[in-house]
C-alpha cells in the first residue's frame, strides 16, 4: 500500500502549528492570571494579617472590629481559603492562647464547613486537604467523618486519615486504629509518633496492652514505640 506521506505531513504541520498557537495563548493567559492572582492574594493577606493581629492581641472593641472586617471578606471561596491558610500558619507558629483564638476564629467564621465540604468532596486531593485543615486546627467534630477513611482504597486518603485522627483525638484515634487493615507506611508511623510526642497521651496499662495485642503488626510496633518514647513520659 502506498501512503501519500506529503498529505500526512501537511496535516501534521497544520495540527502542530494550530496546537502551538493554542499553547502560546494559554501560556500568556496563565501568566497573566497568576500574576493578577498573586497580587490579589498578597493584598488580601496583608489586610487579613493586620486584622488577625488585632483580633489575637486585643480584646473588646478592637477585636470585634477586626472580626467584623474579616467576616466581610469571607464572601468568596478564594478569600476563605486564604484565611484558612493563615490560620494554619498561626497554628504552626503559636501555641496556647493564640492557637486557641485561631481555632475560635475558624469556628466563628464557619470555615470548618469549608473544610468539611472538602472532606466530603469526590476528589481525593480535596479530601486530604480537608483532613489536613480539620486536623491541624483540631476540629473534634470531624473525627467520625475522617475515621470513615482509614481504610480508603486511595493510599493518600488512607494515610492522611490515620494521621489526622491522631491529631484530632489522640486516645480515641489509637483505639480506632487498633482494628486497622493492611500495612502502615513509615511516614504515617513517624507522623503518629511525632504527634503523640508533641501532645503526650496517657494510656492506661490496659489500653496499652490491648494495643499491643492488636491483630495489625504495625499497631503492635506503634504500641511498643509509644511505650518507650511517649507513654513513659
Amino acid at each position: 500500500m502506498v501512503v501519500n506521506t506529503d498529505s500526512i505531513l501537511l496535516l501534521i504541520v497544520g495540527l502542530t502549528l494550530g496546537s502551538a498557537l493554542v499553547v502560546f495563548l494559554l501560556i500568556v493567559s496563565i501568566k497573566f492570571y497568576f500574576i493578577e492572582r498573586d497580587k490579589h492574594i498578597k493584598q488580601l493577606t496583608n489586610v487579613l494579617e493586620d486584622c488577625l493581629v488585632d483580633f489575637l492581641l486585643h480584646e473588646n472593641e478592637i477585636a470585634d472590629r477586626a472580626f467584623a472586617r474579616i467576616q466581610k471578606l469571607m464572601k468568596s471561596k478564594t478569600n476563605q481559603n486564604i484565611t484558612i491558610e493563615l490560620l494554619l500558619n498561626l497554628n504552626h507558629n503559636f501555641s496556647g492562647v493564640y492557637a486557641e483564638k485561631a481555632y475560635d476564629l475558624y469556628e466563628a467564621l464557619a470555615l470548618q464547613e469549608v473544610s468539611m465540604a472538602k472532606l466530603k468532596s469526590r476528589k481525593w486531593h480535596q479530601k486530604i486537604r480537608g483532613m489536613y485543615e480539620l486536623s491541624t486546627l483540631e476540629y473534634e467534630e470531624a473525627f467520625d467523618a475522617i475515621a470513615a477513611y482509614i481504610n480508603h482504597p486511595n493510599d493518600d486518603v488512607k494515610r492522611n486519615a490515620r494521621v489526622s485522627l491522631v491529631k484530632i483525638k489522640r486516645k480515641e484515634a489509637l483505639i480506632a486504629l487498633k482494628d486497622l487493615e493492611g500495612s502502615m507506611s513509615l511516614w504515617t508511623f513517624i507522623n503518629i509518633i511525632a504527634t503523640l510526642k508533641r501532645n503526650p497521651v496517657k494510656l492506661s496499662e490496659l489500653e496499652l496492652s490491648s494495643l499491643k495485642e492488636a491483630k495489625n503488626t504495625y499497631i503492635k510496633e506503634l504500641a511498643n514505640e509509644l511505650e518507650t518514647t511517649v507513654y513513659v513520659q
Partner: peptide
Amino acid sequence: KSVNFEHILRSSL
C-alpha cells in the same frame, strides 16, 4: 498541598 514535613524534620525515627 497537604504534606507536612515538620514531623519528619524533627523526628528521631
